[in-house]
Simulated assay, not measured.
Amino acid sequence: MKTTMTWWWAGAPFILLASVIASVMGTPEVREDVGGMFGPAALISAVAAPAMGFTVALVGRRQQARRRFAIMGAVSGVPVLLFPVFGVLLAECPDGHHC
């Protein structure tokens, strides 16, 4: 179980970049058709895998696995928390506007 959750979490960046990779490889219709689905799927993978793994390790009383999933959650939390801060809250204002 620990390995499955780890691989699921490690695949999140590839899920995020899947539409870009498909576009570069010559299939831009993939990006047009389902490109908006890859971002949320990557976010869910980055958050759900460590949370589920930590829960299973907590119930199973596996301290080493709990430590691994706690670190995975912390690593996932940094970009998940920084995206709203830099992408939404600290977005550049157009000239002449006060945000």
Rank of each mutant, 00 (worst) to 15 (best):
H98D: 10
L81V: 15
V56T: 11
H98N: 08
G96P: 04
R31K: 12
M25W: 01
V59C: 08
A41Y: 02
S45K: 03
A91T: 14
I71M: 14
T4M: 11
K2I: 09
P94K: 11
A41Q: 03
V30Q: 03
G35S: 07
C99F: 04
A51T: 13
I15M: 14
V78S: 05
D33S: 13
A65H: 13
A51C: 14
I21G: 00
A65C: 05
V59D: 06
S45C: 14
G96E: 00
G87P: 10
L16K: 03
P28W: 00
G87Y: 08
G73A: 09
F14T: 00
D95I: 09
V88Q: 11
M72A: 15
P94Y: 11
P40Y: 07
R66M: 15
M25F: 03
R68D: 15
M1H: 12
L90S: 08
E32G: 07
L82D: 05
I15E: 02
T55C: 08
P28F: 01
G53P: 06
I44R: 05
D95S: 14
G73R: 05
F69K: 13
R61W: 02
F83Y: 15
L43Y: 09
D33T: 12
V20D: 01
M5G: 02
G77L: 14
H97A: 14
V80W: 01
I44D: 02
L43W: 03
S45F: 14
G53V: 01
Q64A: 15
F83N: 09
F14C: 06
T4W: 10
F69N: 13
I21H: 00
S45H: 07
R61P: 01
K2A: 11
E32T: 14
P84F: 08
L16H: 09
A51F: 07
V80T: 15
A12Y: 02
V47D: 02
M52F: 06
V30R: 03
G26D: 01
A65G: 04
S45T: 12
A49G: 10
V78D: 03
A49I: 06
F69T: 10
A91V: 12
A46S: 15
A22L: 12
F86A: 12
L90A: 14
T6A: 12
W7F: 13
F86D: 04
V56N: 07
M5N: 08
T55A: 15
G53A: 04
L90D: 05
V47W: 03
V56W: 12
W9C: 06
I71N: 04
D95P: 01
F86N: 10
P40I: 11
S45Q: 05
C93H: 06
G39Q: 10
M25N: 04
E92A: 14
F83K: 07
I71E: 02
T3F: 10
W9R: 03
I15W: 02
F14H: 00
A65N: 10
A91W: 08
A18G: 05
S76V: 05
